[in-house]
């Protein structure tokens, strides 16, 4: 909480009666994109048809992580662990020890904050193939800090052995699910759930674990983005193009291990290097890119688009994305400002 919030709780509010700006608006603003329902759940079912080792676990959140699709298709391979995240990840480790590939789902806050030690010791330290797939990453809910996992990447980047994926859209979620199912180690994947926009599909994109890929080219600035911020960057690029500002968008869904080779080459050639992430400015993609640049002696003009180092407000997502400068409009303003 912020101190101003603590003070203002004794100040009366007035109902405006205007259009709902409700915290219930949970979907991403993604105008102009087709959406796909539950891409993770459907992809996992498809993969599991030919891979009997895949099992699913959830801590009372199957419906909210799209794992219910798998639970309905494979009831014998689905384990409801109740509202007990530590127990779930320990059990996932046990299943993995015996040769299974568990996909364990909950919200990102509960995996990163509550179950961290269990994920660290039972899963990561033993490099077991548990796939931790978590909804509500970063700022994707208006429920306030109890549900907003704004620091999950920072927390998990510190874990050796753990691969971290922040996919952009429905296409990438489906492709990445297949890739992590095939990979031998532990993975943390951020999840967009429900009706998920399809941004990269029409571009002919193919996810590759550990690879950053250009999804747009332009000479005025290079934006390295992950998660839905790649969608935002592409949308901002269209607005900026109308002003004759051309930006590159380098999509880097694998946060760890970072594709330093591609990113450093892009950084060395960039007029302005911008990182864009749905995460606190501390410890995520931006600092990972900055660290790689510093270590390798690459020194571009560098800016970060990220959430502030604060506990964020509750409210409607569109309001919050504007307020915390991760909407398309806010991205355009920031990039334009840095270039002029």
């Amino acid at each position: 909480m912020t101190l101003s919030r603590r003070k203002s709780k004794y100040e009366a509010r007035v109902a405006t009666g205007g259009p709902a700006t409700s915290a219930m608006i949970a979907s991403l603003e993604a105008e102009g994109y087709e959406t796909v329902a539950a891409p993770f759940g459907h992809a996992l079912v498809d993969i599991a048809k030919s891979n009997r080792k895949i099992v699913g676990l959830t801590a009372d959140l199957s419906k909210y992580t799209d794992l219910h699709v798998f639970a309905e298709a494979f009831p014998d391979r689905f384990f409801q662990m109740g509202m007990a995240e530590q127990s779930m990840f320990s059990a996932a480790a046990g299943l993995a020890r015996e040769g299974f590939k568990p996909f364990a789902t909950t919200y990102a806050v509960f995996a990163s904050r509550r179950a961290y030690d269990f994920i660290c010791m039972a899963i990561a330290e033993e490099a077991l193939p548990v796939k931790i797939v978590c909804a509500l990453p970063g700022l994707t809910t208006g429920y306030g800090p109890s549900h907003q996992a704004t620091e999950d990447l920072a927390i998990f980047r510190g874990l050796p052995n753990l691969t971290i994926i922040d996919p952009c859209d429905a296409t990438e979620i489906a492709q990445a699910t297949r890739a992590i199912a095939a990979s031998p180690g532990p993975v943390y994947m951020r999840l967009l759930r429900g009706q998920v926009p399809d941004v990269l599909g029409p571009l002919g994109y193919q996810f590759q674990m550990g690879k950053a890929q250009f999804v747009r080219r332009g000479g005025d600035a290079t934006v390295v983005a992950a998660g839905f911020m790649t969608m935002r960057a592409l949308d901002a690029a269209k607005v900026l193009a109308a002003e004759a500002i051309e930006i590159s968008v380098l999509h880097s869904p694998t946060i760890k291990p970072l594709d330093e080779k591609t990113i450093l080459t892009a950084a060395a050639n960039a007029n302005l290097l911008v990182t864009a992430e749905n995460h606190t400015i501390i410890g995520g993609l931006g600092e990972a890119v900055a660290g790689a640049c510093m270590r390798e002696g690459v020194h571009p003009r560098f800016r970060q688009i990220a959430l502030p180092d604060e506990f964020l407000d509750a409210g409607a997502l569109p309001t919050l994305h504007d307020q915390y400068r991760v909407s398309v409009k806010a991205m355009v303003e920031q990039i334009r400002g840095w270039l002029t």
């Binding site: 919030r5 709780k9 429920y143 306030g144 509750a314 409210g315």
Partner: peptide, 23 residues
Amino acid sequence: DEIGTYGMDDSRMPMSGMAAYTP
């Protein structure tokens, strides 16, 4: 008379209960 602000931006009654928001 604040019932109409429930769950709205800057309400003292956010969807999930928080000490900093609500007497």
